[in-house]
Design a protein around this nucleic acid. Structure first.
Lengths: 225, 225
DNA sequence: CTAATAGTGTCTCTTAGACACTATAAA
DNA sequence: TTTATAGTGTCTAAGAGACACTATTAG
């Protein structure tokens, strides 16, 4: 809250867009078009445009769409990474965000976008590797007690698929009976009447996120092992 | 990660320092010395000094000490508030932090510092009111499952005081038996041998935070009602 | 002794987990 | 029929909550 008598750091926004592909958490990387690190894969990111973005989330949405052509139903600020060393050019600041998208929403990809499993990332420029790790840690922490991973679901799905998504996110298995009970208590999912999907055995009833919750997907407690 | 071809927002850091005084959560306010809002009470805050601060937490520690003379054993980044409207001068950005301090550490105060209960705050300039509310919400959320509130404790204390601190933070009561069991499982507190403190009845054994945990105070699960 | 606070033993009630059972499809 | 997946009923085990009981001080 002082006049800028000191040199101000460059303000950027980086986005960690996560999806489940091939049952593995993957992050969207973008090929840089400018130095430094021109041509290498990094998190999509860019500068805040004070003229067009009303807030930081706006910047994240705009930058992700512009750089990768991708949209996401869920954006959340992750953490601000700001120090003297993360960029060799000097003190810099990135308001990191993370976003979740169902695989069906990320089918077509431009040439400068690539999905990479978060557990087999090569080194990344700047501090992008630790940003990705923080985003994954946040998602996994929230998956333990919230409905956040439901954002990774397609429009309609059997309940067994919900459990699989949670397991793929967490990298551990859940007790089926307890997981079902928890889903019921949540009261977020509703059955799509009549619809079934067979997968080699008894066809599963299809569910969807109840319209009332589609935008909220609130944090609800969960205790599962 | 682009050259600054666009006007860059001013980067500031604000600090929400919380303590328990008179069994109520209170926030430290600082009297502004500059326009706008000169002379009114706001969160202590200031600009990042790229030359001296190696990261944003450093800035927060320095700014809190400089403006208020206060130190805190615990700093954590809260959230970055960045939009076009929070400051009438235009697009601005504040990396908000929160800090916790035991009451004993905040005894002497300079004239430009004031403690105000967080539940009876007057309106504050900028978006400082919502920053305080977010900080309190974060503390209360973490108090539900972590040992974070232990940072509000003095050096030595009876166990009943720990429960009182949790209750004063949360504004609700805990079941004594369950709370004790949880404290034991935590294995963070150790008895100060021989020491007791009487408060009208049987004297209570005094405890302290075990040195091994003094800097960590890790997040441990809790389920209390 | 009573009053007041500290601290524990133990029963109950809730709920996660185990697991067997039924249900509905294909081959 | 068998095989495979979906889904439920119900017992068990663990742990939170209730609550009575003992412990240690002052007056």
């Amino acid at each position: 809250m002082q006049p800028p008598t000191y040199p101000q750091p460059l303000v950027t926004v980086d986005i960690v867009l996560l999806t489940l592909k091939d049952r593995v958490l993957q992050v969207a990387l973008h090929r840089r078009e400018k130095a430094p690190y021109e041509g290498t894969w990094t998190l999509p990111g860019g500068a805040v445009h004070a003229q067009t973005d009303t807030n930081a989330i706006d910047s994240a949405v705009r930058i992700l769409a512009t750089k990768t052509g991708l949209k996401s139903p869920y954006f959340e600020q992750l953490e601000t990474f700001a120090d003297a060393y993360r960029d060799a050019r000097g003190w810099s600041l990135s308001i990191a965000h993370y976003a979740l998208a169902p695989e069906e929403a990320v089918g077509r990809l431009s040439e400068n976008v690539r999905w990479v499993p978060v557990d087999s990332l090569p080194s990344l420029p700047f501090d992008h590797l630790s940003i990705v790790h923080k985003a994954v840690a946040r998602l996994r922490a929230k998956a333990q007690y919230s409905s956040l991973p439901l954002h990774l679901l397609p429009a309609e799905f059997p309940l067994s698929y919900v459990q699989r998504v949670y397991e793929d996110v967490m990298g551990s298995s859940f007790k089926p009976r307890s997981f079902r009970r928890w889903l019921e208590e949540l009261q977020i999912l509703e059955e799509v009447p009549g619809k079934k999907r067979a997968e080699g055995g008894r066809p599963a009833a299809l569910f969807r996120i109840a319209p009332a919750y589609a935008k909220t997907l609130a944090v609800s407690k969960k205790g599962l092992g």
